[in-house]
């Protein structure tokens, strides 16, 4: 019983990080149709910003989260304004361009601060572990879980209860008609990209104390996050949460009970079959096309 509960908690912890990465990706893809392969690099830049703030300024991780969010958001906004903006009519080319940006970002970091692994210290108040129902779990992991729930709640509020969210949803349904109603789609696209990038940056900052920080760290996250988006279906925030939890728990359990590689192969095969039969994802709302 206790091992199962511990497994569930580990799975949730994986899921909460997946959710933070995938949420930004899902919003960007759902709104603009851009497949953002540079998303993993946003995660990486978030982690490096956390490291730089801690090493050179001496600010703790929790205090610097807001700064990290806005730094990476600015980076995402600049990329949208300089590159992505030109590619909305060629969705396949966004894969290529964002991949090129990702390569550049990795190499730029490698040139600027070196390719060796970096470590970020866990906030001292959270380095202990907490006991829940007899299960020991690190306080920091609980904090990530809580924070991602808060961020999800905020995103939901932003999307469904504010005028900017309404505009965003209008654009994702039909950009031209939305423009006819006076919605400035260019501005919204820029903001969407910035917000998605900011979320990825937060995810990067939050995982930085758990794993080592390296220029290549983003690559694994972007693939997993893509699987979350594909599984959950775009334009469905609840779907993103549900598929994060499913994939998080699945990864946790499979890695525990069987061969890691084989588990991955199975997950990928499942994704291939899923796309073939339900390209709109498991949780997509029914929309008339």
């Amino acid at each position: 019983m206790e091992t199962i509960l511990a497994q569930i908690l580990t799975g949730l912890s994986i899921a909460s990080i997946l959710l933070l990465v995938a949420l930004g990706l899902a919003i960007i893809y759902g709104t603009t149709g851009v497949i953002n392969l540079a998303h993993g690099e946003f995660v990486m830049i978030g982690a490096y910003t956390a490291w730089a703030l801690q090493t050179y300024v001496g600010v703790g991780l929790i205090e610097s989260l807001v700064v990290i969010f806005f730094t990476v958001a600015l980076f995402g906004w600049i990329i949208e304004k300089t590159v992505i903006r030109h590619l909305y009519r060629r969705p396949l080319d966004t894969i290529l361009a964002t991949w090129g940006i990702g390569v550049m970002a990795q190499q730029a970091i490698r040139l600027a601060v070196g390719g060796e692994l970096r470590y970020v210290q866990m906030p001292s108040a959270m380095s202990s572990s907490v006991s829940i129902l007899g299960i020991e779990i690190s306080a920091f992991r609980l904090f990530i879980l809580a924070l991602s729930a808060v961020i999800f709640g905020f995103t939901w509020y932003l999307m469904y209860r504010t005028s900017i969210g309404m505009k965003l949803r209008a654009i994702s349904q039909d950009r031209e008609i939305a423009s006819c109603f006076g919605i400035q789609s260019k501005r919204i696209y820029g903001l969407t990209f910035a917000y998605g990038a900011g979320l990825a940056g937060l995810a990067g900052a939050l995982v930085s104390p758990l794993k080592s920080v390296s220029p290549e760290m983003g690559t694994t996250y972007v693939v997993d996050a893509f699987m979350v988006v594909v599984l959950g279906g775009v334009e469905s925030l609840i779907g993103t949460v549900a598929s994060s939890v499913i994939l998080g728990e699945l990864t946790g359990f499979l890695a525990f009970y069987s061969n890691d590689t084989l588990a991955k192969v199975l997950v990928f095969l499942a994704i291939v079959v899923l796309i073939r039969f339900r390209p709109q994802g498991l949780f997509a709302a029914k929309v008339r096309s």
Binding site: V83, L96, A97, G100, I101, V103, M104, Q106, Q107, A108, L111
Partner: peptide, 11 residues
């Protein structure tokens, strides 16, 4: 820096 140059040229 060649990766950086390649990435830029590619974009």
């Amino acid at each position: 820096s060649w990766t950086l140059i390649m990435g830029f040229a590619f974009v």
